[in-house]
Simulated scan of single mutants.
Amino acid sequence: MKKVIGLAAAIGLMTTSLVQADSTITVSGSTSVTNVMEVLSENYKQTAGKTVEVQGTGSSAGIRAAKDGTSMIGMSSREVKTNEMSADTKGTVIARDGIAIAVNNSNPIKNLTKEQVAKIYRGEVKNWKEVGGENKPIVVVTRDTASGTRGAFEDILKLKRKVNGIKVSAIAATAQVGNGNGMVKTIVANNPFAIGYISLGSVDSSLKALAVDGYKASDNNIAAGDYTIARPFVLLMKDDVNKEAREFVNYILSDTGQNIIVNEGYIRVN
């Protein structure tokens, strides 16, 4: 009898574990999207009682995870290329975000043109005096190559070049690399001559976001199309993903979810 009870208890525990695993929604990808996704998941757990596990692994990794099914939902903070998708994987835009050009608070520069920003990142402009600032060398800070923010930044500013017929980054090899918005913020906030780019929703008082072509990086200017260094936040799912994952995405697209997106500093899509 004891063995039977023990076996029944073991089966019960296994069943409970499987139910818990099935009810957990897994999300991975862009570190930029991760910030707002964690807030959305916390609110969703309070209202729907469902657990959402969020991992910031980078946009490219998130796209792959959705495509191969290792995550129910993948996150990308850039447009997803056709050759990255599979026939049974679909993308949904849940928000829009500006990419802020950030400098140290002590930097007197308030505005740059897109062309000036591009030249700084190509290494063609190396001193702040060339763009109206002090006679000091520019410390360029970029993101790692797997970053969706970097991918969007390079696409928007045309920071690609061809080498032997293959497109590669045109960002200067001397640029410092920050792994995530937080690292870029830390470098720029602690170096008076640094320039970096981060998600607009991550901008705080530790640094200064520059106007570009005379337009401040703001929700209104992005929505109007005046501030053009902007990108979508995309969620990717396979067609056969379970209903729990789809319900979570529907929650994000609902008025409640979109209000959370706005409160976190991003632009709603409906």
Rank of each mutant, 00 (worst) to 15 (best):
K2D: 15
K2V: 14
I5A: 11
L7R: 11
L7P: 06
A9R: 08
G12V: 02
M14Y: 01
S17K: 11
A21S: 13
A21R: 11
D22Q: 08
S23M: 15
S28A: 15
S28E: 15
S28L: 08
S32E: 15
S32V: 15
T34M: 08
V36M: 10
M37R: 02
N43T: 05
N43S: 07
Y44L: 04
K45W: 05
Q46N: 13
K50M: 10
V54S: 05
G56K: 07
T57E: 10
A61F: 10
R64C: 04
A65S: 11
D68I: 13
G69Y: 08
S76W: 01
S77D: 14
S77I: 11
V80L: 14
E84C: 08
M85Q: 06
T89F: 01
G91P: 02
T92L: 03
V93K: 13
V93W: 07
I94L: 03
R96E: 03
D97E: 06
D97T: 02
G98E: 01
G98L: 04
I99K: 02
N104M: 09
S106L: 02
I109R: 11
N111H: 10
A118G: 14
N127M: 12
W128V: 13
K136P: 05
P137Y: 09
I138K: 09
R143T: 01
D144R: 08
T145P: 04
A146V: 12
G148M: 02
I156T: 14
K158T: 04
L159M: 12
K162Y: 07
G165S: 07
G165P: 06
K167P: 14
K167S: 15
V168F: 06
I171L: 09
A173F: 07
Q176Y: 04
Q176R: 05
Q176N: 05
G178E: 04
M183V: 03
T186N: 02
T186V: 01
I187Y: 08
V188E: 13
V188L: 13
I198D: 04
S199M: 14
G201E: 14
K208D: 03
A209H: 03
L210G: 06
L210T: 07
A211N: 00
D213L: 10
D213S: 09
G214V: 11
K216A: 03
D219P: 12
N220A: 15
I222Q: 08
I222W: 10
G225E: 00
D226V: 14
T228H: 03
I229F: 02
A230L: 07
R231L: 13
L235G: 07
M237Q: 15
K238V: 00
R246F: 08
Y251W: 02
L253G: 12
I261R: 13
I261M: 12
N263H: 07
E264G: 10
